[in-house]
């Protein structure tokens, strides 16, 4: 037998193949680990419920939220407890000329700035 037998080289080839596929799998996994987190965090980060709540309390009973006391309650507590700068003003209905009440509400927590001009139904 004068020649080197190379029948066995497919084994080493298989080894390489598996190694590479393994390597790429790992790369893909490394990329994917951070995906889900950002969705959850962005949901938490966006103060949808806070803004809804604020707009709700100001607009549901405009005669009660129109007083200066309530207005500064909301402004001061927002800043203390919710870290948000809030300012709003309300215009009460003027029957019979105008049956609607109007509000302009401004909210800013450093990340989200929200502004709404609201008109009652």
């Amino acid at each position: 037998m004068a020649r080197l037998n190379d029948d066995a080289q497919w084994i080493i080839l298989m080894g390489f193949l598996i190694s590479f596929s393994f390597f790429f799998l790992a790369l893909i996994i490394n990329q994917s680990t951070v995906v889900g987190q950002t969705t959850a965090e962005s949901v938490i980060e966006f103060p949808k419920n806070d803004i809804r709540d604020l707009v709700g309390v100001i607009t549901t009973n405009t005669s009660r939220s129109n007083t200066t006391v309530v207005n500064s309650d909301i402004t001061v507590i927002s800043l203390h407890r919710k870290n948000a700068v809030v300012r709003y003003s309300l215009i009460q209905p003027n029957p019979p000329v105008d049956l609607h009440s109007y509000a302009s509400i401004h909210y800013n927590n450093g990340v989200t700035t929200y502004y709404e001009n609201w008109t009652s139904l």
Partner: peptide, 8 residues
């Protein structure tokens, strides 16, 4: 082949 796979 085994060595390569284990190393990876």
């Amino acid at each position: 082949a085994g060595l390569i796979m284990i190393m990876t």
